[in-house]
Amino acid sequence: MKTCRRQTSHSVWRPTMTNNNTLITVEHLSRHYGPIQAVSSVDFELKRGEVLGFLGPNGAGKSTTMQMITGNLAPSAGRISICGVDLLDDPKTAKARIGYLPEQPPVYRDFTVDEYLDFCARINRISKDKIASAVDNAKQRCGLTEVSRRLIGNLSKGFQQRVGIAQAIIHSPAIVVLDEPTVGLDPIQIREIRSLIRELASEHGVILSTHILPEVQMTCDRVQIINKGQLVYSDDIGNLDQRMRATTLMLELRNPPAEETLNSLAGVTSCEAMGGNRFRLSHNQDQSPAEQIAEQAVKEGWGLLELHPERKTLEQVFVEITSSDKSHSSEEEAAA
């Protein structure tokens, strides 16, 4: 099983607490509900300007972890420090630096957007003279200006979600925690929310949970995969990309030679005909034979139509990681 470099370096890490760029430090965080262990000994950190994606099947412990970071749930064991402030020792100071959007946006349906955001600004202790500008700013960033006088209960799901995000960023916290922010939105709204998240990352640190894999690829800088309460993978998105690079090439030719000819090309380990003059060539991880194939194709007049490296989808990588140990039991449990 792959354990991340970061995680192991964490336990040793600690004296650099004064480091200004580390927003959240979580150490050995655990939580159980009665006999059920929802999260067990999770460590991670979040840096300024970073979008951290929390990925995992349903019931993996994503929401529980987020609830603990935001002070909605007390951990059974472990430490959480927010910008150097311990969440359990000084919850008020720590909570002032976090904005949280739970799975279901916590909106008062019989309030208008303006009234609601005004209330949120007040309970986040924004000083009186700055409330109006904070509300305006949040509305603008979340595209709510046109609906500001409408009742939240009458807004569509997408707009309610945006109101939820506006609520989370209204006091411009150092950290924004978003639990499945794009669930139930239409594709256009999803795109808008994603770009909003990217924009937030310029000033805030963002933690995002999702089970939608492409979302992680598009928005996150770093990915953590959590399965059955344990952190099973944690790495930069670049390294995940690396991991996704597969060892196959897709090739389409107008006048293909015999399959054996392709098979005997330098670097190609096997060749599989896909029908319609398409072939899938497998090669070694470290050297792609694409260049030679192109040269050869031109020289021999094969009529090269298509040549591109295939990539594993994030889904495949995800399944590989989460099911690497006991694949069947984990799937059953996730379904339960």
């Binding site: 935001t70 002070g71 909605n72 008020k92 909570k95 002032a96 799975e103 916590p106 949120c120 309970i123």
Partner: peptide
């Protein structure tokens, strides 16, 4: 029931 308690819980109020 409406899950709005978390708004209060995550705000800096006791």
């Amino acid at each position: 029931r409406n899950k709005t308690l978390s708004l209060l819980f995550s705000a800096p109020i006791s």
